[in-house]
Amino acid sequence: MGVLGASTAPIAVGAVDAKAVERPRIHTCTEWGARPPNGTITVLNRKPTYIVVHHTAGGNSSDLSLAHAYQISRSIQNFHVDGRGWVDSGQQLTNSRGGHVTEGRHRSVEILDGGTRHVQGANVGNHNSEVIGIENEGLYSTVDVTPQLWTSLVRLVAYIAQSYGISPDMIRGHRDFNATECPGQVLYQRLPELISAVRAMLGTAPVSPAGARLSWPLLKPGEQSDKVLAAQHLLRARGVDLRADGVFGDATFAAVARLATENGVAYEPCYASRTADESGYLGVTTWPLLVRTVQAGDSGEAAKAARVLMSARGQRFATVDTPTWQRLLA
């Protein structure tokens, strides 16, 4: 289920007895032995709008030491510079399973502490000028984060929010912007808890009612559901020769990947330390290409998709527009 939308409109902080959050210990690039950047670090003369949570999708190591955190940071930088050709690490900050925070892209700590400008990273496709990203070591699709990582994440996000004046309501997961598994289903489902914890540290009140925002769901290979069946009908409505069986198999993956490519949708894999093909995942960037308004008397594949979803929820078929599609798919 999508729990957080990807609205581009900033939300003002609703301060109530605002508290000063002490800056957490952040180990700089110099401390962990980073390579010099392979080019110029871009510093934007504006604040980021969103704080984005990622996972590295690497191993869930039992080594909680600072030395291990340094090694993870070096590994990510090497992969991003040598494997992807980026100027430096893509994320601004990294949080280890031991709760050790390290600087990712050079100058990120210096600029964060200033609170008025933003080091542009490379961690959210088509939105890097808007976001400050935190890579959390590990893979959280089916398991939870360590207590150390969680405590560190809350404190770090609270400090970022305070430094930039960002409302906790603007905390997002990577999948709220790109069709990716990141930050893993388990960690993604804890984002409302993270928002509440950061809000408590800052002493701020909610800006909008809980659960008021919805995002598009993420569908990936192996899933079998009414949502997959609806997606297949919607693909068929676009002329794709695809069997509508409710199973997200290779043909559905390939069809979504083609849809994304043909429409210029950025493919931004979530993995910080290894590659994975998520190009055919159906998510926030690709659902809007599929849905269309259907009327109560319509027939055809798009209407079949709407009927599948409404029937599964015990609803009678009626007009379905984009907001209704989002509610049906939530």
Rank of each mutant, 00 (worst) to 15 (best):
T322P: 09
Y188R: 06
P192S: 03
L153V: 11
E110T: 11
Q92K: 05
P37N: 02
G104L: 00
T319R: 15
L64A: 03
S62I: 09
H54R: 00
Q189G: 15
G138I: 03
L218D: 03
R199F: 00
E278N: 03
G239Y: 09
W216P: 11
R190D: 07
S75I: 10
I166S: 09
P217L: 10
Q185L: 12
G222K: 00
Q91M: 01
A57C: 09
G184Y: 01
V145C: 10
D82A: 07
D144K: 11
R117I: 01
V16R: 07
L235I: 13
I76K: 06
H106K: 05
R74W: 03
G5H: 14
W325L: 04
S279I: 01
P48M: 03
A255Q: 09
A122H: 15
Q71N: 15
V52P: 08
V207N: 11
G211A: 12
A200Q: 13
G173V: 10
V101L: 14
H127I: 07
P221G: 00
A276P: 00
A272T: 13
R25T: 03
L259D: 07
L194R: 08
S152F: 06
V43H: 09
R105M: 14
V81W: 08
R97H: 00
A237M: 04
P147V: 08
A179F: 08
Y188E: 13
L202I: 12
L329E: 06
A305L: 04
A212I: 14
A230S: 12
S215E: 03
N95L: 15
V284I: 12
W216K: 06
E137D: 05
M310Q: 15
H68R: 15
A257E: 03
A9M: 04
G104W: 06
A6C: 07
P323G: 11
A312D: 02
A67G: 05
V3G: 13
G114I: 03
V43Y: 02
A330P: 02
F79E: 00
T116D: 10
Y50D: 13
R199L: 02
V53L: 14
P37R: 07
V284H: 08
N78K: 13
I111V: 15
